[in-house]
Design a protein around this nucleic acid. Structure first.
Length: 253
DNA sequence: ATGGCAACTAGAAGTTGA
């Protein structure tokens, strides 16, 4: 089972990239973030045309998440249960016996800001919910744009901002790991300076000035069956790219 | 030190992202 995540930074703009990528890579699930469109504008038919069904949780202008799959998806959950939030950042679905949770984690803007406080509250609520969710789903994947670079090697050494690399954010990431979720990217040898996001400015992609903030975490039962995890930089080289690259994990079930 | 790019809404310039 191939599971991928991609922050597309506007599904409207990136739809040609997404359909092309699906046709080439044929994942069993593609989790999308930052749709930036309302549900009524979701391009269901265009994705159907390349063989993918969609479940989505969108909003105007900001946020918005979706899961695309050629398979049936059941038990759809939108938003973190019990967490009052107008921002559409979570969608979950079950494919076979694998529970997939797709998240667009808050950015946080700056350590100490109002938005940072929201980010930390959101992370706590997610962790509380997943602890329960994992009890009924031994095979669970948490994937998406975490907006956290979990370790020093996941950020370019010259990244000077605190946001995405601060200790509270990294502690929250570790709390997810302590639930029993593993960052499967690190099961394998990877290039030094492996990143999944590069700023549009300053020729950041060309200079590989980036962050690894898009992740695939899996429960032990799944992680031990993971046979590959890569960052696919090809779409970042296209005309009008998303600033994020897809991350792809293969599970041999 | 600053802003730099892109997408959004709006219909100009301001906000947000990471």
């Amino acid at each position: 089972m191939k599971i991928a995540t991609w922050n597309v930074n506007s599904l409207k703009v990136r739809l040609p990239h997404v359909t092309e990528w699906l046709a080439t890579n044929r994942p069993d699930a593609l989790c999308l973030q930052e749709l930036k469109l309302e549900d009524k504008a979701f391009p269901e038919a265009e994705l159907e045309a390349v063989g993918y069904r969609s479940v989505f949780n969108g909003q105007k202008t900001y946020n918005g998440v979706a899961i695309l799959s050629p398979h049936a998806m059941t038990d759809i959950v939108r938003d973190i249960p019990g967490f009052d939030d107008v921002q559409r950042r979570i969608i979950a679905a079950t494919i076979g016996d694998v529970r997939i949770v797709c998240g667009y984690f808050p950015n946080g803007q700056a350590v100490g800001s109002e938005k940072f406080a929201y980010k930390m509250r959101w992370l706590e609520a997610l962790t509380v919910w997943l602890r329960e969710e994992m009890k009924s789903h031994p095979r669970l994947v948490l994937t998406g744009d975490f907006n956290v670079a979990p370790q020093p090697r996941d950020a370019h050494p010259d990244w000077k901002d605190e946001i995405h690399v601060s200790e509270p954010e990294r502690e929250a990431f570790r709390a997810l790991e302590q639930l029993g979720l593993e960052d499967v990217f690190r099961r394998f040898d990877q290039d030094d300076a492996s990143y999944s996001w590069w700023d549009y400015r300053m020729g950041a992609f060309r200079r590989n000035f980036g962050l690894r903030i898009d992740h695939v975490l899996a429960t032990k039962a799944l992680a031990e069956r993971c046979s590959a995890c890569i960052i696919d930089k090809a779409p970042r080289r296209l005309e009008r790219p998303s600033d994020h690259a897809p991350v792809v994990a293969q599970f041999d079930l």
